[in-house]
Design a protein around this nucleic acid. Structure first.
Length: 494
RNA sequence: GCCCUCAUCGUCUAGUGGCCUAGGACAUCGCCCUUUCAAGGCGGAGAUCAGGGGUUCGAAUCCCCUUGAGGGCGCCA
């Protein structure tokens, strides 16, 4: 049954990068389509001639792809598209005159009219209304202009807009798939603009025409659109078109409960990517903002979200974006990666930090994997592995003070140096065995030897497991660094 | 100002009339493991279910009011 086919869309306007909220809307549409074997469509709503940019469009494509929200139909890039309902970029649709015939139809049927009010007049109208404590919306004054008035406005060179004539009474209602029954009194609605003075359609108009023409079955969007919905429904009714199902997702707020904005930190998907978050982390975390399973599952395997998603699990109330939990989740996802996957993700971050990967004796893949359970962000990696790739390490002053400047350290280090010099097979198990034996023979506790050693070879008090680390450094480098540490200790004694 | 929406631990949430002395996760605290930092394991604290009225034998769950928060009232989307 062609008519029962699930078709959903994400319809961003290219006026900036893909934001967290937009990504979440895209994700839910994508998951819904996957769950019910439907079609996920990407449409670009660039009817804001002033703010829409090609760069933004590109950036949105990139972010969507990075998140793995692959769409089946629609604008595939700035210049390519796929599907039988195109064009999928509204400016191109406008250029083809797609909207015009629907405008003409409405005017002919008396559902739309020209309005000659200037922006200044409208501003004045709103101000006055606010002062008089009335709703600051258009009062419909151009609904019944006389021919003389129209002549006069034209003579003044005024460019009209085209407004939709909203019904004066009755109610507009629908059954929202998330909120349930929603209803608005028509007299509280207003004659919204369908066509701007520039000839371009507005959001509320183009959106309805396209959703209908593209045969959308479900409109899943943010609940900031709830009050646009009755406006749009009246348009559908004027055309006599079948309504799609509506589902309004709750908003995402910043940690202080206000609308998520720059002052809360990163707000775009691209920024999180740069900070070292994995795409699957973002997908999983975003899914959990406003949606959950009956058992409050937190981490989802590949494909599991697509399988378990449902509109029933969607929350009505807004969700606060929690960067702390996001970070935890990223650690979880990093730990699930194979060594090779981790390394592939790490490369750009390591290179950015200026680290020369050729400078280590062992495979950098192994080195990066050494501290896998520790990374919360991919950007944590360089500073945790850098001492594997540089000759001269920096000794952390606090570490030197706390660990190396102890009375027995000089003896321990020179003793252990002698032990290491005699090891031929410099492997972690061998080193550990010899080191423990050295401690025991000389009456030291293991930790008394391990700690100064760690600081000596790495310059820090924390790091990877000690013996594996030394094995990777290699015997020569370990001895060289013990010598350096020895020098620091003896210098401080004199 | 008007309209709409929403309301469970600090946060994300489970819960759809009795299984709730409200469950899970993040964060937090303590203990264990341990060569460090993590990770992991175990345990604790944390929500009189915004407040007040009803309905009912019984309400976080249904109804009403109040309060608070968010959204909208654009030739932005």
């Amino acid at each position: 049954m062609e008519n029962n086919k699930i078709r959903v869309r994400f319809a961003p306007s290219p006026t900036g990068h893909l934001h967290i909220g937009g990504a979440r809307t895209a994700l839910f549409n994508y998951l819904f389509a996957r769950k019910y074997n439907g079609t996920f469509i990407l449409r670009i709503e660039d009817t804001d001639e002033l703010r829409s940019t090609r760069e933004s469009m590109h950036s949105i494509f990139e972010s969507l792809k990075w998140l793995g929200l692959n769409w089946d139909e629609g604008a595939m890039s700035e210049d390519d598209e796929k599907g039988d309902y195109g064009p999928y970029i509204q400016s191109k649709r406008e250029a083809r005159g797609i909207y015009k015939k629907y405008v003409d139809f409405l005017i002919e049927k008396g559902y739309a009219y020209y309005c000659y009010c200037t922006p200044e007049e409208l501003e004045e109208m709103r101000k006055k209304a606010t002062l008089e404590k009335r709703p600051p919306r258009y009062d419909g004054r151009c609904r019944n202009l006389t021919n003389e008035q129209i002549e006069k406005f034209r003579a003044e060179g005024r460019k009209p807009v085209i407004r939709f004539k909203m019904p004066d009474d009755g109610v507009t209602e629908w059954n929202d798939l998330i909120h349930g029954h929603l209803s608005f009194e028509n007299k509280l609605l207003y004659d919204f603009i369908m066509i701007k003075a520039s000839g371009y359609p507005t959001y509320n108009f183009a959106c309805v025409i396209d959703d209908h023409l593209m045969e959308m079955s479900h409109i899943i969007r943010g609940d900031d659109h709830i009050s646009n919905t009755p406006l749009q429904i009246n348009l559908y009714k004027a055309f006599g078109w079948k309504l799609p199902e509506f589902a309004h997702l709750s908003m995402i707020l910043g940690p202080d409960g206000s609308r998520l904005s720059k002052r809360h930190g990163a707000t775009s998907v691209g920024e999180y990517r740069k900070e070292g978050y994995l795409p699957n982390t973002m997908k999983n975390y975003l899914a959990l903002l406003g949606w959950s399973t009956k058992d409050s599952q937190q981490i989802f395997e590949v494909g599991e979200l697509e399988e378990k998603f449902s509109l029933d699990g969607c929350q009505k109330n807004p969700a606060i974006f929690d960067p702390v939990k996001l970070k935890w989740m990223n650690g979880e996802y990093i730990r699930k990666l194979s060594k090779d996957q981790l390394f592939d993700y790490a490369i750009p971050f390591i290179k950015d930090a200026g680290i020369d990967l050729s400078k280590s004796r062992v495979s950098p893949v192994e080195i990066v994997a050494l501290e896998q359970e520790k990374y919360k962000l991919l950007s944590d990696i360089p500073k945790l592995v850098d001492f594997f790739f540089i000759d001269e390490i920096n000794y952390n002053p606090d570490a030197v003070e706390k660990v190396l400047k102890k009375p027995e350290v000089l003896k321990i280090l020179s003793g252990i140096k002698a032990v290491y010099t005699s090891i031929d097979d410099f492997k972690d198990t061998v080193i550990e065995e010899k080191t423990r034996a050295f401690a025991k023979e000389n009456g030291y506790k293991a930790g008394q030897v391990f700690h100064p050693l760690r600081v000596s070879v790495s310059g820090r008090t924390e790091g990877p497991t000690l013996f594996k680390m030394m094995e990777y450094f290699g015997k020569d480098l370990v001895i060289k660094r013990i010598d350096e540490a020895l020098k620091i200790v003896s210098d401080s004694l004199s």
